[in-house]
Nucleic acid binder design. Structure first.
Length: 583
DNA sequence: GCCGTTTTCGGCCCGACTGTTTTCAGTCG
C-alpha cells in the first residue's frame, strides 16, 4: 500500500474517532501522522522494513504498529472494525456547516438520525428543536446547511477562488476606513484546492468595514456577522470570511490566519519556549494568555514576528510545517522563483489542433506580455478528438512558424515561436517516429490514455523519458482536480528515470491540473530533475496561468535555477539541444 | 495518540461567533 493511501486511512480514522467523541488530541494525532507520512522523502516500505517508523517525530508506538500492518498486509483490523461501528451517513453529516461530532452524536443517540436524509426528515418534523441544547434556530440552520451542501461544492480550485477573491480585495482596499488588507488562509498559501476565501483588513472602524463588506454585490448569503468578523457565501458558492483588526494587530493576524494550522502550532510553541505568548493579536511578554498592550512585542510586519522567534521570513507558500522551521532557523530557505522570472513557455496549443488562437495571435500576445519565446506543441495524430496533427500537417506548421518568425525578426523583435509537438505516449511507443521528432525545437511527451495498471503506466512514461528527442514529460499524473484522480503510477520511479536521462518534468499550471503536484518536487529536485512551468495554453488568456504555476513551484521549494523556462531564449535553445547531443 | 532542559503523566494553540443558555458548549478556523 502506498503512502498516499496510508495517509488517507489515517485521516479517516481521525474523523471516525472524532465522531465517536474521542479526545480531540488523539484524533489530531492521526491527522498529524497522516501529514507526516505524506511528507516522507524516503519510501515508506523501506522505513517499515527497517523498523525505523518510530524514529519519526509524530509517529509513536500505536501509529507505527498500524502503519506497519497497513503497508505489510494492505489492511488494518482496527480500521475495519472502527469503520463498521459507525454509519457512513454520520461522516457525511460532518460536512454540513454548523454540525460537529457532539451534535451529530446527540441526534444519533436521541433521534436515531444516522444519515442526511433522516436528519432532514427529523428537522422538518420539528424533532431536532426539541432536544436539549438545540432550538428552532439550530434546526433551521441545519436545514439550510443541508441545502447549501446540496447546491454548492465545499472545495474549489485555486484559479476560481482567486478570480473572486482578488476583486473583493480591491474593493476593500478602496474603502477609506481600511488601512491594510490582504488575502490569508490557504489562498495566500497557494494551495491548489481551497475550502473558503479568507480576507483580512486593518481599520480603526471595524464595524463600518464589516457592514460595507456584507452589502457588496455578488454575496448570496450572510452566514455570520459580528463586530470584527463576517462570513458570507459568494456567487458560485465560495464562502468568504473577513476579519478586521487594528493596524498594530495586522501582522499578527495575517500570520495567524494565513496558517497553516500546523505551522501556527509550531509558531506558538516557539513563542512559549522563549517565555512569550503568540496569538492573532500579538506577541506578548507573558506566559499567560493576554492581550495587554503593555506586554506587546511590537512588530511592524510578519518578518519581524519571525525574527523575534529566531527565524527568517517564511514565504506563505512554505507554511505547511514541511521543514520550513529547520530551514528558517539556519537561514537556509530557498530563494523561491518569482513568476516574473519566467521568459516563456514550452507546452501550448493553437488552432492547428484544439487551441482557440492562431499562430499570429499567439505570437502578438506573448510578445506584448514581454515574453521571449512560446512553443507551439499541438497534439499528435492519436489525439484525433483534439484535431491532432499527423507528420504532414506538423511539417506544414513548422514552415508556417518559421515564416512567422522571419516576419517578427524583420521588424527587429527578438521574440520567437518555437516549433514543437505534444506527442502522445502510446502503448507501444510515441505517436511520431524519431526522425519527425528530430525536426522540432521542443518535444513534450504526454500520456493521454492511461490504463489501470500502475506498472504498465510507469513503464510507458519511463520509455518516453528514455527517448533522446523527448525534452519533457507533460502533466505526468493526468489528474484533474476535483474531477479525476491521477492514474495509477509510480511517480518516484518516473522521476528517477528522468534524472537518469536528463528529461525535464512539466509543472502543468492549468489550475485544473497543477501536475506534477507540488509535493513531489522536493524529491524531483533532490534528484536534480528540472522543472518546466507550462500553461498548456489553449487560448491567449491562459498565459495568466504562469503566475499560478510559479506559485505552485514555490510551494515545491523551487528556485529560479530549478526551472528551465527562466532561461533566456539563447540559453534555452542550448539546453534543448543538449539531450540529443549527450545521448 | 504523542511527547519530554517543567520527562513516563499531564499537558497538547486559542479566540470569535452562534445559539442556547443565564454562564456556557459547540463549532470553526
Amino acid at each position: 500500500m502506498d503512502k498516499d493511501k496510508v495517509a488517507e486511512i489515517l485521516v479517516e480514522i481521525g474523523t471516525l474517532l472524532e465522531l465517536k467523541g474521542e479526545n480531540p488530541f488523539k484524533t489530531r494525532a492521526y491527522g498529524n501522522g497522516a501529514r507526516t507520512i505524506q511528507g516522507l522523502t524516503e519510501p515508506l516500505e523501506k522505513l517499515v522494513a527497517e523498523k525505523r517508523l518510530g524514529e519519526i517525530k509524530g509517529i509513536g508506538e500505536a501509529l507505527e504498529q498500524k502503519i506497519t500492518e497497513l503497508v505489510e498486509t494492505g489492511k488494518l483490523k482496527y480500521y475495519d472494525e472502527l469503520k463498521a461501528s459507525i454509519p457512513p451517513g454520520l461522516i457525511q453529516m460532518l460536512e454540513i456547516s454548523g454540525l460537529g461530532p457532539k451534535k451529530i452524536q446527540a441526534m444519533q443517540k436521541k433521534l436515531g438520525v444516522d444519515s442526511i436524509a433522516k436528519l432532514e426528515a427529523a428537522c422538518k418534523a420539528g424533532k431536532v428543536a426539541e432536544l436539549d441544547g438545540f432550538g428552532e434556530k439550530t434546526q433551521a440552520n441545519i436545514l439550510e446547511g443541508i441545502e447549501l451542501k446540496r447546491t454548492y461544492a465545499s472545495k474549489h480550485r485555486l484559479g476560481d477562488a482567486l478570480a473572486v477573491a482578488e476583486p473583493m480585495l480591491e474593493i476593500l482596499r478602496e474603502h477609506p476606513a481600511v488601512i491594510r488588507c490582504s488575502t490569508a488562509g490557504s489562498l495566500r498559501r497557494f494551495k491548489e484546492i481551497i475550502g473558503d476565501i479568507d480576507l483580512l483588513a486593518s481599520s480603526k472602524k471595524p464595524t463600518e468595514v464589516i457592514n460595507f463588506f456584507v452589502t457588496q454585490p455578488g454575496i448570496v448569503k450572510v452566514l455570520a456577522k459580528g463586530e470584527t468578523k463576517a462570513s458570507v457565501i459568494l456567487e458560485g458558492g465560495i464562502q468568504c470570511d473577513l476579519r478586521v483588526v487594528s493596524d498594530a494587530e495586522f501582522p499578527f493576524a495575517l500570520a495567524y490566519f494565513t496558517g497553516s494550522k500546523e505551522h501556527n502550532i509550531v509558531m506558538r510553541q516557539r513563542a512559549i519556549q522563549r517565555g512569550l505568548r503568540l496569538n492573532e493579536y500579538g506577541l506578548f511578554k507573558s506566559t499567560e494568555e493576554t492581550r495587554d498592550a503593555k506586554l506587546l512585542v511590537k512588530c511592524a510586519d510578519e518578518a519581524e514576528i519571525f525574527a523575534k522567534l529566531d527565524l527568517v521570513f517564511v514565504p506563505p507558500e512554505l507554511r505547511e510545517d514541511h521543514g520550513e522551521f529547520s530551514a528558517a532557523e539556519k537561514n537556509d530557505l530557498p530563494k523561491l522563483i518569482e513568476w516574473t522570472q519566467l521568459k516563456g513557455a514550452l507546452h501550448n496549443h493553437s488552432t492547428w489542433s484544439d487551441g482557440k488562437n492562431t499562430l499570429e495571435e499567439i505570437a502578438a500576445h506573448m510578445e506584448e506580455l514581454g515574453l521571449e519565446y512560446w512553443a507551439i506543441t499541438d497534439h499528435s495524430k492519436a489525439s484525433f478528438q483534439a484535431n491532432g496533427l499527423d507528420a504532414k500537417r506538423l511539417r506544414e506548421q513548422i514552415v508556417e512558424i518559421k515564416k512567422l518568425n522571419e516576419k517578427i525578426a524583420a521588424r527587429g523583435s527578438d521574440f520567437r515561436l518555437l516549433t514543437g509537438s505534444e506527442v502522445d505516449i502510446l502503448k507501444d511507443g510515441l505517436d511520431f517516429p524519431d526522425e519527425v521528432l528530430a525536426e522540432l525545437d521542443v518535444v513534450v511527451a504526454s500520456l493521454h490514455v492511461a490504463g489501470s495498471n500502475e506498472a504498465e503506466n510507469t513503464k510507458r512514461l519511463i520509455r518516453a523519458a528514455e527517448n533522446p528527442h523527448v525534452h519533457m514529460l507533460g502533466h505526468l499524473t493526468g489528474r484533474l482536480l476535483l474531477e479525476r484522480e491521477a492514474y495509477p503510477l509510480n511517480v518516484h520511479a518516473v522521476i528517477d528515470a528522468c534524472a537518469a536521462t536528463g528529461t525535464w518534468i512539466e509543472l502543468n499550471c492549468n489550475p485544473w491540473r497543477f501536475d506534477l503536484d507540488w509535493r513531489h518536487w522536493f524529491y524531483a529536485k533532490s534528484k536534480g530533475v528540472k522543472c518546466v512551468i507550462n500553461p498548456d495554453a489553449h487560448r491567449n488568456a491562459h498565459a495568466g496561468f504562469l503566475r499560478l504555476g510559479a506559485g505552485m513551484a514555490r510551494k515545491g521549494w523551487l528556485e529560479r535555477a530549478d526551472v528551465v523556462n527562466t532561461l533566456n531564449l539563447k540559453l534555452l535553445q542550448n539546453e534543448l539541444k543538449r539531450k540529443v547531443t549527450v545521448k
